[in-house]
Design a binder for these strands. Structure first.
Lengths: 214, 214
DNA sequence: GTCTATAATAGGATAGAC
DNA sequence: GTCTATCCTATTATAGAC
């Protein structure tokens, strides 16, 4: 191959690292712009300005505006899945992990409202995520399902909790609290939100509805 | 006044009715376009084409694109409030009315996803509804609160249900089910939705959590 | 890899004839 | 009240020099 030697050289690695770093900066700037102008109103000229480039130079990093959205989607899904996984594993599995995961999800949604719109709603007209970008969300689903099974096995929840209905209700609670917060107290962080504390009684309500002895 | 005589004449009334009717047709077409292209991607040229007019003629009916959004918002809020009010009064007040109102809200959201995005989220960048357009939603809030009070008085719900926390949880349930449906099974009507049936156990969960004897 | 210049398009809004 | 014509601006994307 032509570039076999170049791939092995340290300068090539440095260049590639720099390239990837600039890509990240572009994505960060894109999120900023979307925060200010709206998810659907991503403006590449403004993004370029913020990273200190001219607009055509962005095409060295992304093939199109849609590619920027897709990279944001992919990175966002990975971040969300990681947050969920970390919270669940720190809580030690089972019902405690489910609680922690749902709280982490609300926190993520509220602290990243723009990204959440991109990830969880159809806010951007032409955009459909690629299969690769969508994949991390499958891991998150599996993780949730596995913790539900654990909670049932540990006799922390009724077996009915580990059904499509039970899973749906759990997710609906997190989605509901997030959207309530976003609609009625936008801009507030998770820890300052007027509605985010509702996730606690919501999970309590869920746990008592699916109590093991029912 | 100059037009005192004209206002009294039947032809003036006819003309005014026709004008208002065309306004409605424009709003309907706008919703159609938004359904296909995205809430934020309202395109006045396309709207004009669908109602059989040229784009500049729309300015006889609305001063600007924002005015179209505002009229949609106003009409949508009135429709939602009416649906909620009708459902509640048909159910006879109290807990039954609350259930009916929440189901009506989910139905409205799922059957009008685009309109719901405009009403309940910040999907359209530059747009903020006028105070007048926003008013009907206050009536809906009062109605909900009054039925909560009734349900407590009738000993159908624990007094704690009629608190900010209780109200928040109730609304979060409806919002959660709606957003779950929209995100995971978009396009389906309320009666065919894979997730809309969750509103029933959700309300059951709510009622048992706020059972009067707890 | 970044730039200038520019193409290509789209879409909101206004002027003025009929 | 509707039209044609047009303006104006914004913004994605490409060509080609350095």
């Amino acid at each position: 191959m032509d570039n076999a030697g170049r791939q092995a050289s340290p300068s090539f690695d440095r260049r590639r690292r720099r390239h990837l770093q600039t890509r990240e900066e572009i994505l960060d700037a894109a999120l900023e712009v979307m925060s200010e102008e709206g998810v659907a109103a991503l403006n590449l000229t403004e993004v370029a300005r913020r990273v200190g480039l001219r607009q055509p130079s962005l095409y060295q990093y992304f093939d199109s505006k849609t590619a920027v959205y897709d990279a944001l989607f992919s990175r966002g899904m990975r971040q969300h899945t990681a947050a969920l996984r970390d919270a669940a594993s720190a809580a030690g599995g089972g019902l405690a992990a489910l609680r922690a995961a749902m709280i982490a999800t609300v926190r993520f949604s509220v602290d990243n409202p723009v990204l959440s719109q991109l990830l969880f709603t159809r806010a951007v007209p032409g955009f459909t995520p690629s299969a690769e970008a969508y994949r991390p969300s499958l891991e998150a689903q599996e993780l949730l399902q596995s913790e539900l099974a654990t909670a049932v096995q540990r006799n922390e929840l009724h077996p009915e909790a580990d059904s499509e209905r039970g899973r749906g209700l759990l997710i609906a609670l997190a989605a509901g609290v997030s959207s309530l917060q976003d609609a009625n107290d936008p801009g507030a962080a998770f820890d300052d939100g007027r509605f985010t504390p509702l996730i606690e009684p919501a999970l309590e309500m869920y746990a008592s509805y699916f109590a093991p002895d029912r």
